[in-house]
Amino acid sequence: MTTVAVREPLATTPPVRPGVLTPFTVFVGRSLRHSLRDPEALLMGIALPTLLMLVFTFVFGGAIGGDSRAYIDYVTPGIILLCAGYGAATTAVAVSRDMTTGTIDRVRTMPVPGVALLVGHTVASLLRNLFSTAVVILVGVLLGFRPAAGPVEWLAAVGLVALWILAITALFAFLGLVAGSAEAASGYGFILLFLPYASSAFVPVATMPSWLRVFAEHQPITPLTESIRALLAGVSPGGDAVAAVLWPLGVLAVALVLTAWRFPRTRSRLVH
C-alpha cells in the first residue's frame, strides 16, 4: 500500500474544546428557536391560556361559583397548572423526535455531554410555560382577577409554578426518551394532563364523591393549587405549602433518576 499524507486539521479549526456551558446554551437556544417557529407551540402558549380563562370564567364561572368575578380568583391557579401541563407535554414529542432522527447520533459523536440536549428542551419548556403563566395572569386581570399578593407571595407563587413545570417537564422528557415515536410520546402524557380536573383546581374537593376525594387530596395538583391560591390572595398557605414543595421535588427526583439510567442506554431508534 502506498503511503499517503493524511492531512492535519485545518488551521482555521484548532482542536479546542467548547466551554463547559456552551453545549447547554447552544441547545437551549435551539429549543427556544423551535418553540418560536412552531405555530402549534405558539398557539399552545398564547391561545390556550386565553381560551381556558374565558371558558372557565364565563361558561363555568356562573354555574360553579354563582358569580364569575368570585370564581376567577378561585380558578386562576388551576388554569396556570393546567396550561403548564399542556406546555410541558410537548417536551416529550421534542425529545422523542431527537431520538428518532440522526440528531442524537451526531451529538454523541461530538465531544459534548449528550444530556445537554435534554437540558435544552427542559429549560426551553420552563421559559415557554412561565410565559403561558404570565398570559393566564394577564388575561385574568383583564377579566377581573385581583390578586392581593405582595412581592414575597408573588415570588413564592411563581417559584411553585416553576418547580412544578420543571418536575413535569423532566417527566415528559423521560417519556419522550422511552416512547417508540413522537405520537406515542404525546399519548403517554395524557394521564398527567388529566390531574388538574381531579383536584381542587376547579371545584372544592368537598363536592366530590368520597373515592374521588381521596384521590384528589393525595395528588400534587391539590396542594399546589391551594398554596398558589392562598399566596395570590395574600394569605399564608399553611401546611399545603410543604406538600406543594415536596410533590414536585419527588417527581423531579424520580424523573432525573430514570433519565440518568435510561439516557445512556437509549440508542437512536432507527437502528435495528
Binding site: 456552551t22 447552544v26 435551539r30 423551535h34 417557529r37 440522526g102 447520533d105 451526531r106 432507527l270
Partner: peptide, 25 residues
C-alpha cells in the same frame, strides 16, 4: 449517518453554526 441529522426547523446556516459552536468554535 443513514438518517439525516439535519434540524428542519433551523436554517442551513443555523445548523452549521450550531455544530461549530458545539465543537468549540
Amino acid at each position: 449517518g443513514q438518517h439525516t441529522a439535519v434540524d428542519g426547523m433551523l436554517s442551513g446556516t443555523e445548523n452549521l453554526v450550531m455544530v461549530g459552536r458545539l465543537l468549540g468554535l
